[in-house]
Amino acid sequence: MEDIVLKTDKLTKKYGKFTALDSADIVIRRGSIYGLIGRNGAGKTTLMKMIAGLSDKTDGSFELFGRPDAELENVKKRIGCLIENPAFFPNMTAYQNLRYYAIQKGIVDRELINNALKTVKLDDNAGKKFKSFSLGMKQRLGIAFAIMDNPDFVILDEPINGLDPIGISEMRDTIKRLNEEEGVTFLISSHILSELYSVAESFCIIEKSKIIKQFTKEELDAECGKCIEIQTDDSSKAVWVIENVLHSSDYKVIDKNRLKLYDHLEDSFSVNRIMIENGINVYGIVEKGLTLEDYFITLVEEVQHDV
C-alpha cells in the first residue's frame, strides 16, 4: 500500500518571476536511498524544503506516504530532516537541544536521545554546548536530530559537509545500516558525488530548476560504467562483428568511428583479435568508465549546449 514514500507531480516553486523549481516529478520507493544531484542554486534544497513543509509550493502537488501535501502535518512525525546547515541553540548542550525537540515531537523515551547521540558518535560530547562544536560535530548533531525518533523517511541536505574522512565513512555506514536494518528511506543531496554513488540506489539530476535525468545505479553503470571503447574505420562493420561473432547486443555507437562495448570487459585483447580477424581496422581499444561526477558534468554541459 505504502510502497511509494514520495511522489511529486509537477511540483513548482516560484519566487516572484524566478522559478526555483520547475515541474519536478520524482518517485521515491520505500526502503530506497535516493540521491539528488545538482549545482548550487539548481533547486535541490527548494525541493527538499517543500517536502519538509518549510516552503509552500507554487504549483503542482506531492504525496507523502500516500497522503496529499495538504495533509502533510499528519505524516510529519514520520520524517526526519536536516536541511541546509544544522541549526540549534548555541547556549544549550547537545543533549538539551535534542531534548527540546524531543518534547516538541512528543517523545517520552529519553533513551532515544542517547541512542541518536550514540549513533552519530556524539555521546561523549552530549554535555558540551552547541556553540563549542566543530562544523563536523554540528553536522552530526543535525543528523542525530533527523534520526532521533526512528523516522521512516529521512531528508538529508548535504549531510557530509564539514565531516572529516572518518566522519564521512561513519556517516555512510550509518545511512546504509539504517536503510538495510530498519528500512529507512533516504533522500540525500550531496556535492561529493563519489560518496553519493556509494550509498544511493537511484539518482536525480537537477539543473537550472528542472529535473534533467532520473536513473538507477544499474542504469548509470550501464550507461557510463565500465566499457571498451573501440576506435575503428567503420562502426557499422564492427557492430556486425559484435552482434554475430561476439553475440552481444550490449553496445552503443558513438559515431561512425567509435563505439562502446559493455560486454567482454575482462577480455579486451580477444575483442581486438576477433575484430582484426573479421577485417575490421582497429585504431585503438581502451577500457573506459565514467564516474557519476563525469556523467553529471556531461549532462549539465549538454543542457547548457541545448540552451
Binding site: 519538509a52 513543509g53 510529519k76 520524517i79 536541511i83 541546509e84 540549534f88 541553540f89 516538541q104 515531537k105
Partner: peptide, 21 residues
C-alpha cells in the same frame, strides 16, 4: 526571535508542526 536568529525554527516546522500552529 532566538528561534529565527538561530535558524532552529526550521527544525520545528519540518518535523513537528504546521506554520499556523
Amino acid at each position: 526571535s532566538s528561534d529565527f536568529s538561530n535558524g532552529s525554527v526550521k527544525n520545528t516546522l519540518s518535523s513537528a508542526i504546521s506554520k499556523r500552529k
